[in-house]
Simulated scan of single mutants.
Amino acid sequence: MSRPSSLVDWDLAGRTARRLTKAGPETSREEAADVVAELHRAAATAVAHVEELTGLHPVAGGPEPVVAVVDRPGWVDANTMGMAALLDPLTEALRAAQGGTPPGPLATAIGSRATGVQAGGVLAFLCTRVLGQYEVFGTGGRLLLVAPNIVETERRLGVDPTDFRLWVCLHEVTHQLQFTAVPWLRPYLEEQVQAFASATDLTPDVLRERLTDLVRSLGDAVRGGTDDDAPQGLMALVRGPEQRAVLDRVTAVMSLVEGHAEFVMDGVGPDVVPSVRTLRKRFAQRRKGRGPIDRVLRRLLGLEQKMQQYADGRVFVTGVVELAGMDGFNQVWAGPQNLPLVEELTDPARWVARVLGSRPAVPA
């Protein structure tokens, strides 16, 4: 998996994560098989509800959506591939743009192995928390449902397992539909990575040092370390207005897709998920406070307000649907020019005015 010039030894990261990963909740073989089967059924059931609510449908002739129910090591394997697919081309683009020569094999091996161990530690922690994920990078196109984490969470929350599994699937199937119904979305995100590389003045060696510091700080965050003297996360790589503009665009589109999924998973109502209100209330309690995931994401982004923008995504989607209906909101998928700007996330009427050509009165 790892190339000789890679910033991170992803093979080592995967092995480290597998070694450090905690076992999932205790279940019998029969119980585990039932969970896998029910998650597949829930994902299939969710498709019709998500399409009906959103008005989106996969493009004709596109790839067949794939659902994979995985364990924690399976999630690790998928994400080492995805992270390699995201970061390695960035390194190569930097080197090519600056005409640099790769460092010697010894320097590369030492640096990439150190970063690989750090990355493996972070993956080992995250793989116990993620409930589901649509693979955008790497192999791409698969919807992953992490069975042990779903079972562990539903037990901890004390909620109805059938309702909770469908509720989770509604969220993840929404992500799947976003990328299968909007074929330009994935290339757009990939273009932003390339744009970030083109706008940077960092050498690959300096980038390696910054990313090593960043990954190390993520490990500190997972273990509960403070933000004192922490590096600036991704913002440490940002030097000029072009890079800041790229980061704003990525933040806006990720806020959009997350807010859209949150809107859908609650929008289906109790006719589809009878205990949806209880699920939302208890799940919101789970998210409260500054937990490890919050610390990791804040450290990664390097700026507290960036986390708020992810929450703003739901405000944006709800606001636009209230002002312009679902058909009006779906104009956001017409092309990159219709994506929200960062400042529009908390001002949906501003997006409506810019994209739809009118500024409706906001109800008091």
Score class of each variant (00 low, 15 high):
118 Q>L: 15
118 Q>C: 09
103 P>F: 05
103 P>Y: 10
106 L>F: 07
106 L>H: 10
100 G>L: 09
91 T>S: 06
116 G>K: 13
91 T>C: 02
108 T>F: 05
106 L>D: 12
104 G>S: 04
86 L>E: 14
101 T>I: 08
111 G>T: 07
93 A>I: 00
113 R>Y: 05
93 A>M: 03
91 T>K: 08
116 G>A: 13
104 G>R: 04
89 P>S: 01
113 R>L: 07
98 Q>P: 04
85 A>G: 14
100 G>V: 13
104 G>T: 08
113 R>T: 12
99 G>H: 02
93 A>K: 06
94 L>N: 00
102 P>H: 06
86 L>F: 10
87 L>H: 02
97 A>C: 01
100 G>A: 14
92 E>S: 05
98 Q>V: 00
88 D>H: 09
115 T>K: 13
99 G>I: 01
110 I>A: 11
102 P>E: 15
112 S>P: 10
104 G>H: 08
96 A>N: 11
114 A>G: 15
112 S>R: 14
99 G>F: 02
118 Q>I: 04
105 P>D: 11
102 P>V: 12
92 E>T: 07
117 V>F: 15
113 R>G: 13
100 G>K: 07
88 D>Q: 12
94 L>Q: 03
113 R>F: 06
88 D>L: 00
114 A>Y: 11
94 L>C: 04
105 P>W: 09
96 A>H: 07
112 S>E: 08
106 L>A: 10
96 A>F: 07
114 A>V: 13
101 T>P: 03
95 R>Q: 13
88 D>E: 15
94 L>T: 01
85 A>C: 01
102 P>F: 05
97 A>D: 08
89 P>L: 01
116 G>Q: 11
105 P>A: 10
86 L>I: 00
113 R>M: 13
95 R>A: 08
107 A>T: 14
100 G>D: 15
104 G>E: 03
92 E>M: 03
101 T>Y: 11
96 A>W: 03
93 A>V: 00
87 L>Y: 13
109 A>N: 04
105 P>L: 03
96 A>K: 11
94 L>H: 01
94 L>R: 08
89 P>A: 01
92 E>N: 04
111 G>P: 11
114 A>M: 13
89 P>E: 02
102 P>G: 12
112 S>W: 06
85 A>N: 15
109 A>Y: 10
96 A>V: 01
112 S>Q: 11
115 T>W: 08
99 G>K: 02
91 T>I: 04
96 A>Y: 05
109 A>K: 11
98 Q>E: 10
110 I>E: 12
116 G>V: 06
111 G>K: 11
116 G>R: 12
100 G>C: 13
107 A>F: 07
95 R>N: 03
94 L>Y: 06
118 Q>T: 13
87 L>R: 02
108 T>R: 14
97 A>Y: 01
96 A>I: 00
85 A>S: 14
110 I>L: 14
87 L>T: 05
91 T>N: 05
102 P>L: 05
88 D>G: 01
96 A>E: 12
114 A>Q: 07
